[in-house]
Computed example of a mutant assay.
Amino acid sequence: MTKLLVTGAAGHLGRAVLRHLLETSKVAAADIVAASRDPNKLADLAASGLKTRAADFDDEAGLVKAFTGVDRVLIISTDELATPGKRITQHRNAVSAAAKAGVKHIIYTSMPNPDKSLVTFAPDHLGTEEAIKASGVAYTILRNSWYHDNYLMGMPHNLQVGKWYTSVGTGKITTISRDDCARAAAAALANPPAGSRTFTLTGSETLTAAEIAARASAATGKPLDVVDVTDEQLTQGLTGAGLPAFVANMLVSADANIRAGNFEQVTSDYETLTGQKPQTLAAYFDTQKAALAA
C-alpha cells in the first residue's frame, strides 16, 4: 500500500487536502499520514482513522523520522514570513529529510513565476524548487495562483467604506480558490503524473481591480470604487492601519507584481489534474456573502 503524508495538516490548505484525499480521490484513511508541528491539533483526524505524526520544519532529524515509511509527501509551504531566511531554511530541511527518508515523490506548493515575481516571498519558493530538483527525488511542483480567499482579508473593510485603495493600476490577475488548489494537490498526491512535472494552477479568467470590485459589489449589493495609489502611498496606508511592516511590504509587492503582469496567466493545469473547471471568483464571492458583508 502506498503511504501519503501531508505536512501542515492543521492548516486551512492541509485540512482541505486531507478532505479531498478521502472524499474526492477515495484514498483509504489508513494510507494517509497527517503531520503537524503540534499533533495535538490533529486529534479529530486521528479519531477518524488517519495516522498523525509530529513534523517540525525547524527539526530536520525529526522530519526524517516523520517521513520514514512514506512513499509520497506533500510539502505545504510554511507561514514563516516574519523572519528573513527562516522559511527557505525550513523548506530545505523538509526536502533534505524527504530524500534521507527514502520518499519516492515530493509534491510542493509554490507560486507562479517565482523566478521573476516581485512578491517578497518569491525567493523562498524559487529556492525550494531548486532544492527539490537537486534532491534527485521525483517531484510535482504546484504553482498556486493568488487565492480567491485572500480577498476576505481586506475586502470586507473596503466594502464597508466603499473604497479599495490599490497600486495594481491596469494590471490583471488570475485567482483560484484555496479549495481548488487543495483538490489539485490531493489528486497529485494520490496519483502523481509520471516523472517530474511543474503545474501552474490558475482560474479561467484574468481580472482588473475594477472587475474584481464589480464582482464583490454584485455579491454584496454594496458599491465599491477602486482608488489608484502609488506603492508608497499604499505602504503608508497599510502601516498606518497597524499592519506589521513585513505584511504591508508583502501586500504592496503583490500589487506591484500584478501591475508588472506576473500574475496574469491562465493555464488548463487545474483541469488536467482534476478533470474539473476551477471555481470563478464571482461564484466564490457568492458563497462568501456573509464574510464580505461583515
Rank of each mutant, 00 (worst) to 15 (best):
L201T: 02
L5R: 07
A55F: 13
F67V: 09
Q279S: 12
Y165H: 14
S48Q: 15
D31L: 01
A187Q: 11
M1Q: 09
I106G: 04
D255T: 11
D124S: 03
S117M: 03
T78Q: 06
P123T: 07
H105D: 02
I75D: 05
K3Y: 09
T68I: 03
S268R: 05
V252L: 07
S25H: 04
T200W: 00
R178G: 14
L201W: 10
K289E: 13
H20D: 09
R178Q: 15
S96V: 06
V95F: 04
H12V: 14
S177H: 06
L292A: 08
C181I: 15
L63Q: 08
K86Q: 14
L4K: 03
T230P: 12
A34D: 12
K172E: 10
V73H: 04
A219R: 02
A30C: 01
G49I: 00
G8I: 04
T208N: 11
A210W: 04
T7S: 10
G203W: 01
P156E: 07
T220Y: 13
A210M: 00
R197A: 14
A98G: 13
V229Y: 11
A46Y: 01
T274H: 04
P39K: 07
D231R: 10
K65F: 05
L18S: 06
N249H: 13
A10I: 05
E232Y: 07
Y147M: 09
R72L: 03
R87N: 12
A9F: 03
Y270F: 15
L13Q: 13
G8H: 06
A131T: 09
A47F: 04
L18R: 01
L5T: 03
D79K: 11
E80F: 08
A184W: 06
I106Y: 04
T7Q: 02
T235R: 12
S217K: 07
D79A: 15
Q236F: 07
R37H: 14
T239H: 07
R215M: 13
M153G: 04
K172L: 06
S110V: 00
P39A: 12
A248D: 04
T170V: 13
T198M: 11
A213Q: 00
K3R: 15
P193Q: 02
T2I: 08
V227M: 03
T280L: 12
I76E: 10
L292M: 10
S177E: 12
R197N: 15
P193D: 09
L281D: 02
A254H: 07
Y165S: 11
D38I: 03
A245H: 05
D58Y: 10
A131D: 07
D269L: 11
A209V: 04
A99D: 11
L201S: 09
Y270S: 01
N257G: 08
P123E: 01
A131Y: 06
E211S: 02
G85T: 02
A248R: 11
A82C: 00
E271W: 01
D44H: 12
H157A: 15
A216K: 02
L4N: 00
G8N: 06
N93I: 08
D79L: 14
A34C: 09
V119K: 03
T68V: 07
Y139W: 05
A55H: 05
I176S: 00
K163E: 15
H105E: 02
N249W: 05
G195A: 09
E211D: 04
